[in-house]
Simulated assay, not measured.
Amino acid sequence: MESTLVQLFAAILVLHRSAAEPPSCSLVVNPDNLVVKYGDPASANCSSDKVEELMGWETPAGNVGKENVQHVEWSVESLTNWNVDVIMCYYTGLEHQCNISLSIIIYKTPDSVSLELKKHTGPLKEKEEFQLECKVESVAPVQFLTIEWLRGAKLLKTSSYSDFHVEGKENENATVRDTQNFTTSKEDDGVQYRCVAKLDLDPLQPIPEVQSESMTMDVYYAPRSSNPASNVTVVQGASMELPCAADSNPQPERRWTHNGRNLSETNSVLKVASVQFADQGDYECIVSNPVGLAVIRRTVQVVVDYKTIICAVVSAVALLIAIFAIVKCCKHHKENKTGFYDLIAVTRKIKCVA
């Protein structure tokens, strides 16, 4: 009797558990999530492993249901309802019901991306801090937006959601502003800055990026000389050129001095056609622009070319010797050509030989 009661209790417990635990949900949604561009068509299919009494979709725009089907499709020709972020597929039977959700992300690429120099007018100066603002207009969703900052081809920084100032609804047509501070260098002059807006949503189908127009930086910096201070030795009478090259922005003015006296020369090269001893001494080229100046110093020494003098003396001596030899030869010849000749003796020698 006792064992019969135990068996009856176990059977009741099994039946209770069976009634309390509904069958597992067999619904499958394809795709399992949707990434749709605002205004594009969208669709999804929901299927079961058997025919269901009632099967359909619940959406913010309304419900769609069919009876005695094994699958049901949801589709729209143009998805423009920003509130459609989750829709649900369901089936309902006599014994139980089941549902599964489909997540939808609606995105919109920016209408425009622009770059602006803030709180500053005119050229920048070297080592000056400046602020750039990247403005991304009409983009969604902001949570998936990143902004890349580039200097030429070099990536300087990548900004994300926590860096942004957002105007409007984050999941609709929002305007995003990202502000960054930089410090100029000489190398920034003529370099182009730009920002690039990216939506990182679907790695299988990358969304086209939108970038700003490039901003070319105009950076003023003091002159830098490529001609170090040096000593120059010049032979008296030779020509001389002293270069005064300097890199600067804006272009510099030049002023030359010789032994502290201002010269009229303002070119980048000081030229002297024939150097004399009065030209030796200390030369300075002062290169200046509104940002600063640089001074290039040179000391010029004028020397005599003794080799040339020695060669001239040797040549002169050789010429005198040659003239003396010619005069002596001429005198000797003149003395000897008027001597006595024995013509009879000469004739006899000729006959003997014959």
Rank of each mutant, 00 (worst) to 15 (best):
K37G: 10
T146S: 04
Y283F: 14
N259A: 05
S264C: 01
K125M: 09
S239H: 09
V304I: 08
N33E: 11
F144C: 03
E187S: 10
V295W: 03
L54R: 13
M217Y: 03
Y283D: 03
S248N: 07
A11Y: 00
C89H: 11
R255W: 05
A325Q: 07
C134Q: 05
Y193I: 02
V136P: 00
W57E: 03
N227D: 15
D32G: 00
V14S: 04
E170P: 01
N45A: 08
P290H: 07
H96M: 06
G281M: 08
Y306L: 07
D305V: 05
V136D: 01
A312V: 10
I104M: 08
Q180E: 01
E52W: 14
K186Y: 00
V295D: 04
G168R: 01
L242F: 10
C46Y: 02
S212A: 09
L54F: 06
I106M: 13
V29C: 09
Y221I: 05
P243E: 10
S47F: 11
P31K: 06
P250D: 15
L13R: 15
K169N: 13
P141W: 10
S103P: 06
T183V: 11
T158I: 04
L15V: 10
T266D: 09
F182H: 00
A222W: 04
Y107D: 03
F182C: 01
N173I: 04
D218A: 11
Q180N: 05
L204A: 12
F164I: 01
M55P: 01
K271G: 03
L79R: 02
S239D: 14
L8V: 07
E213P: 06
Y220C: 06
N171D: 15
A318W: 10
D247W: 09
E137D: 09
G152V: 01
E148R: 00
T121L: 08
N181T: 11
I104Y: 09
C352V: 09
I310G: 07
C285E: 02
V232D: 05
G168H: 02
K125Q: 15
V142Q: 02
N81Y: 04
Y221E: 04
L124N: 02
K125L: 13
Q276K: 13
D32R: 06
I323G: 11
C98T: 07
K169W: 02
V327N: 06
Q7F: 04
N249S: 14
L102I: 06
Y193C: 03
E58W: 00
V139E: 04
E77R: 04
S185L: 13
M217I: 07
F340S: 06
R194W: 06
V196I: 13
L199V: 06
W57H: 01
N171R: 09
D282H: 07
Q97K: 13
L34M: 08
P250A: 14
V191C: 06
M88S: 12
E335K: 07
M88Q: 11
K135C: 00
T179K: 10
T4M: 12
S26T: 09
V51C: 06
A238R: 09
I87T: 08
K154S: 03
G168I: 05
G281I: 10
D163A: 04
C244N: 05
E213L: 07
V29P: 01
N249I: 10
A273S: 15
V302P: 08
D200Q: 11
S47T: 14
L263P: 12
D342L: 05
Y220N: 12
N231R: 13
N171H: 12
S268P: 00
A229F: 03
